[in-house]
Design a binder for these strands. Structure first.
Lengths: 328, 328
DNA sequence: GGCAAAAGTGTAAACGATTACATTATTTAT
DNA sequence: ATAAATAATGTAATCGTTTACACTTTTGCC
């Protein structure tokens, strides 16, 4: 492998000069620079990033820690983060925690040991309490799920308002017997449940049901089946994430229930399928591209200026009204 | 930061001994080992992976290079790869090429410079020719798309057979005017087109149309609209990947065409939505979990034994017959 | 008991870059 | 013309490990 020494020799300069040309962090005579660059091209030299990282005590990598990249929300975030990082010459280490605090800790340690410049991170609930201890170790941006610590940069959705708006939409369209399915793995589910209840309260109603369940298609399916078979069948189902929405939709279809006439269905996240199904699903679309990009930018800012005072960016969701929530 | 020196001092041994205890690659007296481990725990020492990687000239990272992680096929692969890597203590660097050969080259170089142990890689067509030159640089496993070079490990689907089976299924169900939409970015599209044509030939039929287009929802939509508005309207549409399927499905719906009675629709890849829509889509399901896992295992084998003779694993797809391809 | 082999440990040289410090060459100001 | 300031470059230490080599101790065998 050709190293900086080879380049130095070929260009007739010291390794220091080569380094300075390449990192361009010092004045260099134009003629020398040219000679060095020539040698670099000639030898097809590529700096060893590991060595650079070791000596400079930093790297051009960031970590992305989410529960599961297969969740369309995180897929989109992941892509946006990767794009934003790429533009700055950074690459992204992808980590799936499966909502498992142990895996989460393992990955955070790993990222730390890998000397990543920073981490974009959607934490489990258990993590929240311990967040401050990690905070010191490396730059952090929390996405999607609030943590208690106020010392952390965050990019969040205004979940309460979004859920409130979505629920109100159901109520305005005449639905009265609402059931809510909320993911139990994150603070997101809790916040959305709060908006849900708040809207109902405005109408002086109680929910028919409100379940906190594991955010998986199967759980959404099972719970919906139970609701539909129960004595007090809801006329509208509110789901707090797209996996639950998918499960609920499947259950409604299998039970041959007409949506939205018998039962309405609403949820979060615009997915490929949410408008392909019949009827298309009314959802709160999250600005995933913007979340990912903002988080990455915030992270870069913190990397540059670690003592900068923390910023929380709260973005708004967009209500997309489709066929699943308006009686004909 | 506490380093190996601190541990050595605390345990009253040399750094070499500490290293040997931690990397477990030499005989150590039990008592010494214990003292070292105690010191490690005491100081909460974590080895610096960058330094290790520099000295040992290897790392516990692998690269995953695909066109777009948002494509459900690659999402699933990515997750499977990450899981398999995790089990071996490896982490995954995620790279999206957008079918852009320049981005592809940039990322491959980056991964090389990052000293990754190997790369799992779904190449663009342009890459195929140059593949051998990269082959020498680091261990490689190609997935999804064949390259010419026979010196590379590959994990592929038997695309010709799968497409043949899918097409034959349409023909057996009485469809005769078939149109094919194939992705133009990969060899996959070509192979699937071959299976498509082969099946038609067996029935002594010609396709109504066969288009190679950019693998995006929008192109699938536009092309399908054109087909439906054309003079020779097909009675069945074959799509070579899930994005084209989604586009075609949307077009059929917007044109209010009854599926499968007026026009059938079939495609590749089982997605969340493919069985949520009405009718559910008949597809060839790829064994994504197995592809990702096999690729990762192959990669580890090659990392361990670089001179091992290359292996190509060809997996079979599974035809899932749903409502979109059987006239009632 | 003696000798060879194996086990256990230490010393110091890598790995390939960056950078503090020293040094020399060139401007600039007077 | 000369001192002072600045630009340009080189020397060598450094980042935190692993590991070749050397050395000492223990074990096994006849």
């Amino acid at each position: 492998m050709t190293s900086i020494k080879d380049v130095a020799k070929a260009a007739g300069v010291s390794t220091a000069t080569v380094s300075r040309v390449l990192a361009n962090n010092a004045p260099i005579k134009a003629e020398t620079r040219e000679r060095v660059l020539e040698a670099v091209a000639q030898l097809n030299y590529r700096p060893n990033l590991i060595a650079r990282s070791l000596r400079a005590q930093k790297s051009a990598k960031i970590g992305l820690v989410v529960s599961d990249i297969r969740n369309p929300f995180f897929t989109a975030i992941g892509r946006a983060v990767e794009d934003a990082a790429y533009e700055q010459g950074y690459s992204v280490l992808m980590c799936n925690t499966d909502e498992n605090p142990e895996k989460e800790e393992l990955y955070l340690n790993l990222l730390h040991d890998e000397n990543v410049a920073g981490v974009i991170f959607s934490p489990t609930q258990q993590f929240s309490a311990a967040s401050h201890s990690y905070n010191a170790k490396m730059p952090f941006v929390i996405i999607d799920r609030a943590v208690e610590s106020k010392e952390t940069d965050m990019v969040l959705l205004d979940n309460v308002s979004a859920a409130y708006e979505l629920t109100t939409h159901l109520l305005e369209n005449g639905y009265r017997k609402l059931a809510g399915l909320f993911g139990d793995a994150s603070t997101t589910g809790q916040e959305r449940s709060r908006g849900f209840h708040k809207a109902l309260k405005d109408y002086q109603l109680n929910p028919v049901a409100a379940h906190f369940i594991s955010p998986r298609i199967k759980q959404g399916y099972d719970t919906t089946i139970a609701l539909l078979e129960g004595t007090n069948r809801p006329d509208a189902i509110f789901t707090s994430n797209s996996l639950l929405t998918a499960g609920a939709f499947q259950a409604l279809r299998d039970k041959k229930i007409s949506v939205p006439n018998e039962v309405a269905l609403v949820g979060f996240d615009e997915t490929t399928w949410s408008e392909l199904v019949d009827p298309p699903i009314t959802v709160i679309a999250q600005p995933t591209e913007e979340i990912g990009r903002t988080a990455t930018e915030l992270l870069f800012q913190r990397i540059q200026e670690p003592s900068r005072s923390p910023k929380t960016v709260i973005l708004k969701g967009t209500l997309l009204v489709k066929g699943s929530s308006k009686k004909k």
